[in-house]
């Protein structure tokens, strides 16, 4: 330990302790700056409506679950007399709502919207990575006529902002009855993501020596079996990185979601601003929705982090 520490002090390749400390300080400062708004949102979700808009902003406050209750329920305003005539509230959230002269009329649409986001986000990510891996493998291993032109074409689909084709897609989807459906949204996000997936994964698969699959072929495996048992496990870094990029895009996508979903298949991004409009500016509820919205991406990233750390240096796979 001490020997190692001493040797790094004079090492050319490794930074000196002072430089390292400075680098750490910069990273920590940057992390705080980026995480602070997120923490503020998480905190706001636990504030009362008046605390949420208090000026100067309140850092210390009495936490309440009103924001979450408001997010998950639809409420109606009633006269105090009517509320008094009701049988006593049985649940904690009933009590919370009645304090503001309201009663719960039913669940809000947040859960169906959240489920839409999960299905569309993860569904399109899975498809994009699957199709991307197969296409990338083919481009990497087989002699494909016009391979370079095809690859460029695939990349070129990313050069235009997707919204530029919003109108034609909207008309096409209406014709095909794909508006406001899971299938439609999954297809759309898959189509947008697959080009990125092909390019990213091709880089990773190119790095895996062919001999590995060839050994499997000689041993009696079929090409698909070799792909699954030999190539994909070694491309796991690339797959993890690609999956996260794809998920982040489809999870956050707003423009198409506004245009093409309004009810059954509406995802969280167009739904969240909708919450603001319902009964004044309910910032705690919006903050609660945002918190809920961020959780899956955070979990997914933490889950894949082990693979991601190596994968983010594109294609730099250990040989």
């Amino acid at each position: 330990m001490t020997a190692a520490a001493r040797s790094t002090a004079h090492s050319i390749v490794e930074a000196s302790p002072r430089v390292k400390a400075f680098a750490a300080a910069v990273v920590i400062f940057y992390a705080l700056v980026t995480i602070a708004p997120m923490l503020w949102i998480v905190a706001t979700a636990f504030k009362s409506q008046s605390d949420a808009i208090a000026y100067p902003p309140k850092v210390i406050f009495q936490p309440t679950l009103e924001g979450y209750v408001n997010l998950f329920t639809v409420r109606t305003r009633q006269t105090p007399d009517f509320i008094a005539s009701l049988p006593p509230a049985t649940t904690w959230y009933d009590k919370l709502v009645r304090k503001h002269d309201m009663v719960i009329a039913g669940p809000s649409k947040v859960m169906p919207r959240f489920i839409n986001s999960l299905v569309i986000g993860f569904g399109s990510t899975f498809l994009a990575v699957l199709l991307g891996a197969l296409a990338a493998y083919a481009f990497s291993r087989f002699r494909i006529p016009l391979a370079d032109d095809l690859l460029f074409f695939i990349l070129s689909t990313r050069m235009m902002p997707p919204v530029a084709v919003a109108i034609p897609i909207y008309l096409m989807y209406r014709q095909l009855n794909l508006t406001d459906t899971w299938t439609g949204m999954i297809l759309l996000y898959t189509a947008v993501n697959v080009s990125l997936a092909v390019w990213l994964l091709k880089g990773f698969i190119d790095e895996i020596p062919r001999e590995y699959e060839e050994a499997a072929l000689v041993d009696g495996y079929t090409r698909l079996q070799a792909l699954r048992k030999v190539v994909l496990p070694q491309a796991v870094t690339g797959i993890a990185a690609t999956a996260i990029f794809c998920l982040i895009f489809s999870w956050n996508e707003y423009a198409f979601a506004v245009l093409l979903t309004s009810g059954d298949a509406q995802t969280m991004p167009p739904f969240i601003p909708f919450i603001i409009g319902e009964g004044g500016q309910d910032w705690p509820a919006v903050a609660a929705a945002t918190t809920l919205f961020v959780i899956p991406i955070v979990l997914f990233t933490i889950l894949l982090r082990r693979h991601l750390l190596r994968g983010i240096t594109f294609g730099a796979v250990r040989k």
């Binding site: 020596p209 001999e211 060839e214 030999v230 496990p233 796991v236």
Partner: peptide
């Protein structure tokens, strides 16, 4: 290759690292 009943030791990359 699979039906020929052959075993092949490659010059390089003969073991699966995973």
């Amino acid at each position: 290759p699979g039906v020929r009943d052959i075993a092949f030791v490659f010059q390089q990359y003969s073991l699966y690292p995973h």
